[in-house]
């Protein structure tokens, strides 16, 4: 049976595409959500932060990661008409997706491009993953979500 991995980010368009392919091909679908832990390195050059200021920030960012995880997983489960697994990993997003792809011997990766997960908003996730894997990849070109709208959560187009 064909194995598909969906890299979760807030895009529902990508979720739907993955579900559609899995239905068409009668493949098994696994969704992977990676909690980004690179915030620490991203702000590491800043040496002026005082006392608990950076720790507060990292905690705040981590809480956002948790909320985002719950939201994405719930949205995906709601949309998926059949039984599917939602996995969760922590680390650098591109590394974790690559690791899961190799360990789980998947045949196809479905992900948004640009990928909007944690700090990947400033990185080229797909470009990084493509370098290290051998399976097929389906990139869903998504419109960048309304990051700067007054009230929109950074998500769900």
């Amino acid at each position: 049976m064909m194995k598909i991995l969906l890299a979760l980010d807030p895009s529902t368009q990508t979720m739907d595409e993955a579900i559609k392919i899995a239905t068409d091909k009668q493949a098994s679908l696994t969704a992977l959500f990676v909690l980004d832990t690179t915030w620490n390195d991203y702000t590491a050059h800043d040496w002026l932060s005082g006392s608990g200021s950076r720790a507060d920030f990292l905690e705040y960012a981590r809480d956002h990661e948790f909320v985002s995880e719950t939201e994405c997983a719930a949205t995906f489960r709601k949309r998926c008409p059949f039984q599917c697994e939602v996995k969760s990993a922590t680390g650098r997003v591109s590394d974790e997706i690559t690791r899961e792809l190799i360990e789980g011997e998947y045949d196809l990766l479905v992900m948004s491009h640009p990928f909007r997960r944690g700090l990947e908003v400033v990185r080229d996730t797909a470009g990084k993953i493509l370098k290290d894997i051998t399976c097929s990849v389906y990139l869903v070109q998504t419109n960048p979500p309304a990051l700067f709208s007054r009230n929109g959560s950074a998500s769900l187009p």
Binding site: T37, N40, S49, S51, L58, S88, T90
Partner: peptide
């Protein structure tokens, strides 16, 4: 769901205070 421990780790020290 595993707790992302590394996230709050800053240097060898716990916070900037340390």
């Amino acid at each position: 769901m595993s707790e992302p421990k590394k996230n709050t780790k800053m240097t060898v020290f716990k916070t900037d205070r340390h």
